[in-house]
């Protein structure tokens, strides 16, 4: 069942085309990868989905419902949550309070204080951040901050989780940890749509992969199909024969 879908998405920034007629489908309960060379428009696509701005043309639908022009906070309440490529936790807040923001405000409906704090605690445990609960977000290292971003997004009890390069920049141990967490999240019934550059991770985790290049979708399919697609290879490696 398709849970998230985009049709004909086009976005210009002052005359520069960031996305051109992009169609995509994400199946419910899957892990779908979004890859492409730098500047391909991947984060722009995420920004469109989460409502930070509207496309010039095209629509995004969630469970068949048109969410193209909805406000970001509405989209979050509907069940779409995200992390940020340039890690943006609430730096002045503690790890715990970062997650609490999502719990108190990101859900459809709200929880009483005690339940909310319990929820936050279990999410932090899930993301292996319990020991850092009272630390301020700006006191964490990169790996911890990326896990915090994911924890905060999970606080909103999302149905779709948009992960923007959560693995890039992590050491092998941290990478393995977070990959396990992503799988565990999917096992809980959350659909994962992830932008990633680390090929091993994307290909290892994804059920399907979508490839963007210069704002256009150039390939789509299983990791196997995509890595052997000549267009994809050309986009990443250029035309020179190896």
């Amino acid at each position: 069942m398709v849970i998230l879908e985009g049709k004909g998405l086009t976005k210009y920034f002052r005359g520069l085309s960031a996305l051109q007629s992009v169609d995509f489908k994400v199946e419910e309960g899957s892990i779908t990868g979004l890859i492409g060379p730098n500047g391909a428009g991947k984060t722009t696509l995420f920004n469109l989905i989460s409502g930070l701005f509207s496309p010039n043309h095209g629509t995004t639908t969630f469970h068949g419902m048109d969410i193209t022009h909805l406000r970001p906070d509405r989209i979050c309440h509907l069940g779409i949550s995200r992390t940020y490529q340039l890690i943006r936790p609430f730096l002045g807040l503690s790890v715990l309070r970062n997650v609490l923001v999502g719990i108190y405000y990101g859900r459809d409906g709200t929880l009483p204080k005690k339940k909310a704090e319990e929820e936050a605690g279990s999410i932090l445990e899930f993301m292996e951040l319990s020991s850092k609960a009272t630390y301020r977000a700006d006191q964490l290292n990169t790996g911890e901050r990326k896990r915090l971003e994911m924890a905060r997004a999970l606080g909103t009890n999302p149905k779709v989780l948009l992960l923007d390069e959560v693995i890039a920049g992590l050491n092998p141990a941290e990478t393995t940890t977070i990959m396990k967490r992503i799988e565990a999240t999917r096992d809980k019934g959350v659909t994962v749509f992830m932008i990633e550059h680390v090929m091993k991770a994307v290909m290892g985790l994804s059920d399907r992969v979508i490839v963007l290049h210069h704002g256009e979708k150039i390939a789509e399919g299983t990791p196997q199909e995509v890595t052997t697609d000549p267009g994809v290879i050309k986009a990443y490696l250029g035309d020179k024969r190896i």
């Binding site: 409502g51 930070l52 906070d73 949550s81 943006r88 730096l91 923001v101």
Partner: peptide, 13 residues
């Protein structure tokens, strides 16, 4: 105060 844009995407009107 920390990050208004991000706050919006976490459900804050």
């Amino acid at each position: 105060r920390e990050d208004e844009e991000v706050a919006q995407t976490f459900g804050i009107n």
